[in-house]
Design a protein around this nucleic acid. Structure first.
Length: 110
DNA sequence: AACCTGACGAAGA
DNA sequence: TTCTTCGCCAGGT
């Protein structure tokens, strides 16, 4: 495995700082990290290194407020983790972003 | 260098 | 509201 690019490193730092009970979307993370169009890179990072960097992967969801994992089992597990943090679902696998999207303004560490 | 991949996302139909 | 299409990115092979 190669050394993560600065961009990828920023993505990792941002994800690590998402507080409990809050979420961020792929696109938003990419935007804050410096490239608004690199949402796919965020998913790649989660898929390949969430274990390695102990990332709170479950706090990253799609821009439409829905969970985006491929299998139904994974989504149910992610939903469970989020509910344990106090997040309530408005649909099967959907939450209200207005309510749970992390207000990045209060960020300092990144 | 070329091609493929991933838990994306905006825009249309 | 659901489904397609198409563009985008860094890493991996």
């Amino acid at each position: 495995m190669s050394i993560p690019s600065d961009f990828t490193q920023r993505i990792i730092n941002i994800i690590k700082n998402i507080p409990e009970g809050k979420v961020l979307t792929y696109g938003f993370i990419a935007k804050i990290a410096g490239n608004p169009k690199a949402a796919r890179q965020v998913s790649w990072v989660l898929h390949s290194s969430s274990k390695k960097y102990h990332l709170p992967w479950h706090r990253v969801i799609s821009s439409n407020g829905k969970l985006s994992m491929s299998s139904i089992e994974d989504k149910q597990y992610q939903k469970k983790l989020l509910e344990l943090e106090g997040i309530e679902f408005s649909g099967e696998f959907k939450i209200d972003l207005k309510k749970y999207l992390w207000n990045i303004d209060s960020i300092e560490v990144i």
